[in-house]
Nucleic acid binder design. Structure first.
Lengths: 189, 189
DNA sequence: GTCTATAGGTGGATAGAC
DNA sequence: GTCTATCCACCTATAGAC
């Protein structure tokens, strides 16, 4: 109990592996060697790889949504909230990682059903938060857009994930920033 | 020689597999069973999986660029060209596939170097074509955008790839269409 | 060009000692 | 909780007969 919690350290390493190599691109052996334990030990904490995958998404979403709550708590206006939202993506990319769920979205065709559902839940919650910010921004007349807030939120999410994915394959964060600034600029942020 | 060309049929099956399951998500065994041949036969045509991967990207790019040449040849205006460009993505998605190179971009961290280079070449050529169309559109005053055509082309590419990837994980082509129409609309297309 | 057979490695996963 | 040992399925790839 006084230990830094092995399960969490497993998740830390696995998270980075999924974000850089994908769920199908890493194995228990990778985690074992990074953590200097045997593969069998890992199975004590996460019996099957799908269990590890599910816990990974849950934790990622929890941390991500907590960051969004912090953005809200700091009471900035909607423009600033959107910029800080995009900055989260930029920070992840700056660490040479892809968004965990963006990566899983690409691997959708091979994922266990529970992971598919969890992954979509992450996107749904992101969309929900974005809709709130967009509506606030429109109400306060600092953001402008046509169509529904839901449509804009979905488009924004896709743009950030896509820009991130391609920028990563060029090792070029500025490429992401350019696309991000552009889409935010169109909204008035 | 009079045969319908086994190599091409291998590429057809492998292409669909990469677009639905990813490069790391399929094996020679998958192709072998679909084609009713043994794995060993496949190695006669493509000695290593990386060879198959490279040929896959080359062919995909060739076919894709040929489609862009056809769009140009039909002499439409820049707005129509962009709409037809987006329609290619929509058609691929409608067949439950991801863009081959968009899929590979997600798997970037595990790809052999030659495949990484080939994948980026595909994006570079897309960007080059888009830049031409954007400049034409601006010249003819049917498209409007701030910044350079190159920046817009990169942003557009990322948006379409990202919207495609997420829409696929919802099995919802309309979701892609919505994002696509929005970004084209902002350009005036 | 396709086959059988097989090599050599890695995947996820389990049993049971400590 | 972590270990050793092991299982078995699957992977990419090759040798050599037909």
């Amino acid at each position: 109990m006084a230990r830094p919690d092995t399960s969490q350290r497993i998740l830390d390493i696995a998270e980075r592996l999924v974000q850089t190599r994908g769920y199908n691109g890493f194995s228990y052996a990778d985690i074992a060697s990074a953590l200097h334990v045997t593969k069998a030990s890992l199975h004590y904490h996460f019996p099957a790889k799908a269990d590890l995958g599910a816990r990974l998404i849950e934790r990622y979403e929890r941390n991500f949504l907590a960051a969004l709550v912090r953005i809200d708590a700091e009471g900035r206006d909607a423009r600033e909230k959107l910029r800080r939202y995009a900055a989260i993506y930029e920070d992840v990319l700056g660490d040479n990682r892809m968004c965990l769920c963006g990566m899983l979205a690409a691997e959708f065709g091979t994922l266990p059903k529970s992971m598919r559902d969890d992954m979509r839940h992450f996107f749904d919650e992101n969309e929900r938060w974005l809709v709130g910010v967009l509506q606030q921004g429109k109400r306060e007349k600092v953001l402008k857009f046509s169509g529904t807030a839901g449509e804009v939120a979905q488009a924004l999410l896709g743009t950030l994930e896509g820009a991130m994915m391609i920028a990563r394959s060029y090792g070029d964060v500025a490429r992401f920033k350019s696309a991000s600034d552009r889409v935010l600029g169109e909204l008035g942020a």
